[in-house]
Amino acid sequence: MLEFLVGSGLAAAAGLNAWMPLFLLGIVDRFVTGVDLPAGWSWLSSDVALWITGVLLVVEIVADKIPAVDSVNDVLQTAIRPAAGGIVFGAGSSAETLRIEDPSTLFAGNGWIPIAVGIAIALGVHLVKATVRPVANAATLGLAAPAVSTAEDVSSLALAAAAIFAPVIAGILLIALVVGAVLLLRRRRRQRDRDAAPSA
């Protein structure tokens, strides 16, 4: 159960910011005593991986705060965030990676299941984010983009850190995230129905 909470928290964090949980996992594996990634995922803490994920994290943080650029970034991240979610769920839930030399072995066992679950969770969070962000930008003429983006970055960091160090808290944060997303989508639907009513 704890493994599922760890993986889910990390995957949801990836849905908000693809690079935050990847970078955090690498940093924690590298510098925090007592936290070790499974052997198949230890590449996340290599120098190359930390530099790449660190630079991409900064790029995403900056791009996500600029109106219009944030929407383009969300389109580009539609493939990246779910992939990151699959990686961090797999690493966080202690799933072992499979040998890349033989792709046919991926579906031979159950090693792909945690990765698929992580992809689904990150994709769901990403789609909610990508749906809500343009509405917030339009309603505020883009002025809300930096504040909303900062809230997403903080939420991603909090979810990832909680998933690693306090999985039960990550589960609570994940439930709060789902409830918040449902409320936002319902509010958007009501607003759309209200706007459509006079024209009908």
Rank of each mutant, 00 (worst) to 15 (best):
A120K: 13
Q77A: 14
L185V: 02
V58F: 08
L16W: 14
A39E: 11
P114Q: 12
K129Y: 13
D36E: 15
A181D: 04
V148G: 05
L5S: 08
K129H: 15
V62M: 03
F89S: 04
S199P: 10
E3D: 12
S156K: 03
S42G: 08
L183H: 03
I27D: 09
S8W: 06
R81G: 05
F23K: 04
M20Y: 07
P134L: 01
P134A: 02
S71L: 15
L44E: 00
P167V: 01
L10W: 09
N137M: 15
W41P: 01
G90A: 10
G54S: 05
V48C: 11
G7D: 09
A122K: 05
L157G: 06
Q77Y: 11
R81E: 03
V75M: 15
L173A: 01
L143K: 08
A63Q: 11
S42N: 04
S199F: 13
L183A: 06
F4I: 09
S93N: 06
V58W: 06
L98E: 00
V28P: 13
P167R: 06
A144P: 03
F23Q: 07
G142T: 05
M20D: 08
S156I: 04
V72G: 12
P21G: 03
W51F: 10
F107V: 10
R133Y: 03
A68W: 04
E96I: 00
N17S: 15
V154D: 07
T150C: 12
R133T: 06
L22Y: 11
G9I: 03
S46F: 12
V132N: 01
I100P: 10
A18R: 03
F89L: 02
A136V: 04
L44P: 02
L174K: 07
A181F: 08
E3F: 04
L143Q: 07
